[in-house]
Simulated assay, not measured.
Amino acid sequence: MSDQLDGKTVGIVLAPRGSEEAEFTEPRDAVTEAGASVEVIGVETGEVETVNNDLDSAGSYEVEKTFADASVEEYDGFVVPGGTVGADILRADDDAVEFVHDFFATEKPLCVICHGPWTLVEADVVDGRQLTSYHSLETDIRNAGGDWVDEAVVVDEGLVTSRNPDDLDAFCDKVVEEIEEGEHEDRETDDV
């Protein structure tokens, strides 16, 4: 365990169902091992079940706070896992979309993987940004004004994106690095 993130609090999302387990647990474990405290945020509190490969049931985890009850000021970084169903549920939830939009405006690290960038598109924060995602989101991101690239992990002024579970090692390393770095005052947020 290191002390890179001592004193920092990281919010990690879980959808009511369909979040990809490894995309939740591996970033959670990486920031915890680096010394951060973690709070799990979702649409509703209580136990939720994650999935493996979108279809197979995985573990059950506790959502501690709803988006409506959370404040962007409470967190030094925020992680949005993928999972096709989970990401689709989140992008259709007004509180989740508003939270992601407002968190992006804080200039603090926002870390999103796989299908999670659907929420970024819905939050209207990808215009002019370079990012990656699961390949099937390329057109959605480009249509929203983003510059989609096919790379394991992309960092654009504290916006950390990654393609899929195969890229989790690179993603987790960047998540820790960017949260340690803190706010990115150069990130253009005037138009969000």
Rank of each mutant, 00 (worst) to 15 (best):
T139G: 05
W118T: 13
A70S: 14
D191Q: 02
T132Y: 05
S60M: 12
D56Y: 07
D56P: 00
F103G: 11
G18R: 01
V10S: 03
D124V: 09
V13R: 00
W118H: 13
G18E: 08
Y134I: 11
M1E: 09
V155K: 05
Y75K: 05
E177Q: 14
V51S: 03
K8V: 10
D3C: 09
A70Q: 11
I89K: 07
V48A: 00
G116L: 07
Y75R: 02
A15F: 06
G146I: 13
G83W: 01
E49K: 04
R187P: 13
G35R: 02
T9N: 04
D93K: 01
E107I: 02
K174L: 14
G59E: 01
R91W: 15
V80E: 07
E98K: 06
S136E: 11
S60D: 15
G182K: 04
P109C: 05
D3W: 08
D6C: 11
K65T: 14
D167Y: 01
A34G: 06
F171L: 09
D88N: 13
T132F: 06
S19E: 06
V192L: 07
S136R: 02
T132Q: 03
I141K: 05
E33R: 04
D186P: 12
L110I: 02
R17G: 12
Q130P: 12
V79K: 01
G42S: 00
E122V: 10
D191T: 03
G82W: 05
V79C: 07
E188N: 14
P117N: 08
G18H: 03
D93T: 06
E178Q: 12
R17P: 11
L120E: 10
E47I: 05
T161N: 09
A68P: 14
H101V: 03
I12E: 05
S71D: 14
D147E: 11
D94T: 13
V43L: 13
G35Y: 08
S19H: 02
D186S: 12
H115D: 15
C114T: 14
E181C: 04
T139N: 06
D150P: 00
S37D: 14
F104M: 10
E23D: 12
R163N: 07
V63M: 02
E20A: 04
D93E: 12
I41R: 00
T66F: 10
C111T: 14
V112K: 01
K65F: 11
V176E: 15
V192P: 04
E177D: 15
A58Y: 04
V48M: 00
C114R: 06
E44G: 00
I41M: 03
A30H: 12
E47D: 10
A96M: 08
H115Y: 15
A58C: 04
D140W: 05
G83R: 01
L14T: 00
T50Y: 01
E23S: 10
L90I: 10
E180T: 08
G158F: 15
G128W: 09
P109F: 11
G86T: 02
S57C: 07
E26Y: 06
E47H: 01
D29R: 03
L159R: 05
D76Q: 08
L159H: 09
G145I: 12
F99H: 08
T9A: 02
R17D: 15
D88V: 10
V149I: 10
V100T: 10
N53I: 09
E44P: 03
I41K: 00
T119F: 12
D156Q: 08
A92Y: 12
D147M: 04
L110T: 03
L168E: 08
A36I: 07
G182D: 10
E33V: 09
E181T: 09
G116M: 08
